[in-house]
Lab assay of single mutants.
Amino acid sequence: MSIQHFRVALIPFFAAFCLPVFAHPETLVKVKDAEDQLGARVGYIELDLNSGKILESFRPEERFPMMSTFKVLLCGAVLSRVDAGQEQLGRRIHYSQNDLVKYSPVTEKHLTDGMTVRELCSAAITMSDNTAANLLLTTIGGPKELTAFLHNMGDHVTRLDRWEPELNEAIPNDERDTTMPAAMATTLRKLLTGELLTLASRQQLIDWMEADKVAGPLLRSALPAGWFIADKSGASERGSRGIIAALGPDGKPSRIVVIYTTGSQATMDERNRQIAEIGASLIKHW
């Protein structure tokens, strides 16, 4: 058993032996400061991975655009179909130039040979490839079927209504393609630790998130040596930015963190910096 498999397999085991986890309101002070700095709403939640207890939250039940963070949920739905014998990670999917949409750094290189379902999930999560996400959405029946999958998990909040890139429109008060921090954190925890997916599929999902290559300026920039993080970021119109993550010290995840912001006029660099500073406060007061 690899170190990674050891880590995921023991998450339920550690729940019975973990020390009490204490919240630190200092992080919420930073979240509120980020709102002031960005001139935008910020949603935040910090969840204990083992118990599911909410440690801190700010606007946990307000809607925010999901942006590309939905791609983790999408690959969770794909893995659920794999577990049920309805899909194979090794199945190759062929597509054409007409299928390519904006920001497809991986799929645009494989027009001649296509990509496997496994490769598409990797591209969608680690590189946020939009065509990969659309191709995967097609395999499960489209955005409405992803919403149905989430409903069956008990998440009646999170919804996907459109495809890439239209889902990134982020119109104020538009509930399409949105979630709430509390709903996203709970759903992510179920995917990573619950019985919905097999152990192998849970491991695969967290491996893809751990290999994320496009979230460096966010929480990863504040991470001390030896800490673990598996994450997925997102960005969209109207100053929207977000990240969902499982992270913790000693090389294993122990908390879920979800951060969303929307409605800012700030630059992408400034949005990144504010999220990184929230992460730094979280780690300092861990």
Results as ranks from 00 to 15, higher is better:
Cys75Arg: 02
Gly248Glu: 01
Ile3Arg: 10
Ile278Met: 06
Thr69His: 10
Gly263Val: 08
Ser254Glu: 15
Leu137Val: 04
His24Arg: 08
Ser2Trp: 09
Ile45Ser: 04
Phe14Gly: 09
His94Leu: 13
Glu277Leu: 11
Leu218Cys: 04
Leu282Gly: 02
Met115Ala: 05
Ala225Gly: 11
Gly242Thr: 02
Leu167Val: 10
Gly76Ala: 14
His110Glu: 06
Ser264Tyr: 05
His94Asp: 09
Trp208Phe: 05
Glu237Asp: 08
Cys121Tyr: 05
Met180Thr: 15
Gly52Tyr: 03
Glu145Thr: 09
Ser80Val: 10
Met180Ala: 14
Met153Lys: 06
Arg238Asn: 15
Glu108Ala: 12
Pro20Leu: 05
Pro217Ala: 13
Ile278Leu: 06
Gly242Ala: 10
Ser221Gly: 08
Leu19Ile: 15
Arg118Trp: 14
Arg159Ala: 03
Pro224Lys: 04
Leu135Asp: 02
Ala246Ser: 07
Ser240Thr: 07
Cys75Ser: 04
Glu46Asp: 05
Gln203Pro: 12
Gly90Arg: 10
Glu164Tyr: 00
Arg241His: 01
Pro224Gln: 04
Asp83His: 02
Leu136Gln: 00
Pro224Cys: 02
Arg162Thr: 04
Asn152Ile: 10
Val21Asp: 04
Met180Asp: 07
Glu169His: 08
Pro165Thr: 07
Leu19Ala: 15
Ser254Leu: 09
Ala276Glu: 08
Gln265Val: 15
His5Tyr: 13
Arg91Gly: 03
His94Gly: 08
Ile93Asp: 05
Ile11Glu: 05
Trp227Tyr: 04
Asp231Asn: 04
Met268Ile: 12
Pro12Ala: 14
Ile54Pro: 07
Arg238Gln: 14
Arg7His: 12
Ser281Phe: 08
Gln4Ala: 13
Thr178Gln: 01
Leu136Ile: 07
Ala245Leu: 02
Asp129Phe: 00
Ile283Ser: 04
Asp161His: 03
Ala133Ser: 09
Ala183Thr: 08
Lys252Gly: 08
Gly251Ile: 05
Arg202Glu: 07
Leu89Phe: 08
Arg81Phe: 06
Lys284Trp: 07
Gly216Val: 07
Lys252Pro: 03
Gly242Ser: 06
Glu175Gly: 07
Ala183Glu: 08
His285Thr: 09
Arg81Asn: 08
Ala246Cys: 12
Arg81Val: 05
Ala200Glu: 15
Ala245Asp: 01
Phe228Ser: 05
Leu137Asn: 00
Leu79Glu: 00
Gln97Ala: 15
Asp231Ile: 03
Leu55Ser: 04
Trp227Cys: 03
Asp207Arg: 13
Asn50Gly: 15
Ala211Phe: 07
Glu277Val: 09
Pro60Ser: 15
Gly85Cys: 08
Arg255Gln: 00
Glu175Pro: 14
Ala84Ile: 11
Ala124Ser: 09
Lys252Cys: 11
Asp231Leu: 04
Glu61Ala: 12
Phe228Gly: 03
Pro224Phe: 01
Ala170Phe: 13
Gly43Leu: 01
Trp208Val: 00
Glu119Lys: 04
His94Ser: 12
Tyr103Leu: 04
Gln204Glu: 11
Lys213Phe: 08
Pro181Gln: 00
Thr147Arg: 06
Asp269Val: 12
Gly242Asn: 04
Trp227Ser: 02
His151Ser: 15
His94Lys: 13
Ser122Gly: 13
Ile125Ala: 00
Tyr260Arg: 02
Asn98Met: 13
Pro253Glu: 05
Leu19Val: 15
Lys53Thr: 13
Arg63Thr: 05
Leu223Ala: 08
Pro249Ser: 04
Trp208Ile: 03
Glu210Ser: 10
Leu192Ile: 13
Leu197Phe: 04
Ala276His: 11
Ser240Glu: 08
Trp163Ala: 06
Leu10Pro: 10
Thr112Ile: 14
